[in-house]
Design a protein around this nucleic acid. Structure first.
Lengths: 283, 283
DNA sequence: CGTGCTGTTGAGGACGATCAATGACGGTGG
DNA sequence: CCACCGTCATTGATCGTCCTCAACAGCACG
């Protein structure tokens, strides 16, 4: 199916075109991203994770298969993908979640361009049992590389292994931070979640204060009820911190949001790109 | 007494001798653990993480430095350890936590024999900023290997790199499970935490239903107040599920505890040793 | 122009936090 | 050996954050 890129994106239903994780370059991309453009997040991510050798990177990129036009609501990593892959999100937004017995769903993390979305599948032999799902929240494109190729690269170029390992460690940091956040009052919890997403997008070069998620998704990620989440959002709007359109959060006042969240981006370990987020003094 | 303490352990203040993470082998180790005995968790862990080559393992073990007699309350990973190491807990029990601004502390995970306790330090250059602390909850012994040696081994023997990576992925699983657990009612949250510790100890061969932790520690890990935690414990005792002595939880009825927790050990990915924990049917 | 999803509003109730005090145990020093 | 002290466990009372239920409004899509 899609993999020639280009035209394919346009063929997509484009349900949420304006919400897609546009990198904010209004340049000459009118006719769809070239493969090189699309793969920019790959380079950025690996560079950030310590893979500096251009040759190594090129070798990895050669083995990658691109898929465009995955629309909101689609499952990335469906059972169709049982053939084991290593997958990176190139554009758009997605979330990793699990449905609990009582019907509620817990969103573990939001996925931004440059994120690996199936490390667990790559690492664990029987990861399907975990019932971890990944769903597109905006029009997405992904890059996949099959397990065997990935294995070989990791074996021959230790830097890649370390990069993936580092990515896993950052996931630990994120999960732990969210864990600690569950004890905070609702307002701070929501504010912190939004700060996290802003920071992550910023580190991938996306700097419009826009996050294409609904209140429901925020609720599922923070563990709050949708009703209470809604009330928090109203408060945040009254404070002039953010605006909200259907399924879109727009952060108007980053500074204030960050204060409300008492946000300290260091746990994301994306130093280079976070200069704009003040590092709070050690308490 | 338990693990018959080597001379070294015995020299420790032995504040909590009976609470130390006894491996439950009443064998002929009367005069203290030989290096081989002490290092058994190393082999077990790496085997579980896919390092099967005995030669590789031996090479690793050769570079290890053992330290005994770390007593309850001591900080493993103090600033004294600034020299970068990779550290594994060999015996005892510890916890990884962070103190929050408001004084409360969040315990992220309990550390059992065979756990790596400082992967974050090994991986992140400036991990100290994270203010992650590791404290002994019982008399502990650890094995450390300096960063450079570890680097070399990882580089020359990819299996080790993958093992450490796998360990990191399991940490992700644990953190995410705890995250989801924050939405459950207090009883289940506590029960689940205890099940997790039992399962982890079992996978390292410790099968007395004893966990040497206080109610305060359970509270700090589950995010409940100490008062409420106490009430939950009382309920669990009335149900005949567990008994409690000062700083010691004894699980009397595993089966029932597991039901209350709706515990499914698969996320720990320690398959081989968990035969006794029934795998719940997929819901 | 319905149908469905998202966002909004109100009322009532529950789970768990907080505050305050006491009991029990163990370790320490006189 | 006993008195002291700190930590851990326990109990009662009150309060608040957040959940649940229920209904409705708006927008997008077919």
């Amino acid at each position: 199916m899609p993999e020639t890129a280009g035209a394919v994106v346009a063929q997509g239903r484009r349900t949420c075109d304006r919400y897609s994780g546009c990198e904010g370059k209004p340049g000459p991309a009118m006719k769809g991203p070239s493969a090189a453009d699309a793969l920019r997040p790959v380079a950025r991510t690996f560079r950030m994770l310590g893979v500096s050798d251009v040759g190594e990177l090129a070798e990895f990129v050669k083995l990658v298969r691109i898929e465009h036009g995955i629309v909101r609501g689609d499952m990335l990593l469906s059972s169709a993908h049982t053939g084991k892959h290593l997958t990176m999100l190139l554009g758009g937004l997605a979330c990793t979640f699990r449905r609990q017995e009582d019907g509620t769903r817990q969103i573990y993390t939001f996925r931004h361009p440059g994120d690996f979305i199936d490390l667990h599948r790559y690492v664990f032999p029987q990861a399907d049992e975990q019932h971890l799902e990944v769903e597109a929240l905006a029009t997405c494109s992904i890059a996949t590389i099959d397990n065997q190729s990935a294995d070989q690269i990791v074996e021959h170029h230790p830097a890649f292994g370390r990069a993936l390992w580092l990515a896993a460690m950052i996931e630990v940091n994120i999960a732990r931070t969210r864990l600690a956040a569950m004890r905070w009052p609702a307002m701070r919890r929501v504010a912190h979640l939004l700060c996290e997403q802003l920071a992550r997008r910023l580190s991938y070069g996306i700097d419009n204060g826009v996050i294409p998620i609904s209140q429901i998704e925020v609720a599922d990620a923070t563990g709050l009820s949708t009703v209470h989440t809604n009330r928090v959002f109203q408060d945040l709007r009254k404070l002039g911190v953010l605006a909200m359109k259907r399924q879109t959060v727009e952060v108007v006042n980053k500074q204030r949001l960050q204060e409300l969240a008492e946000f300290d981006a260091r746990y994301l370990s994306a130093d280079e790109h976070l200069s704009r987020w003040s590092v709070r003094p050690v308490l």
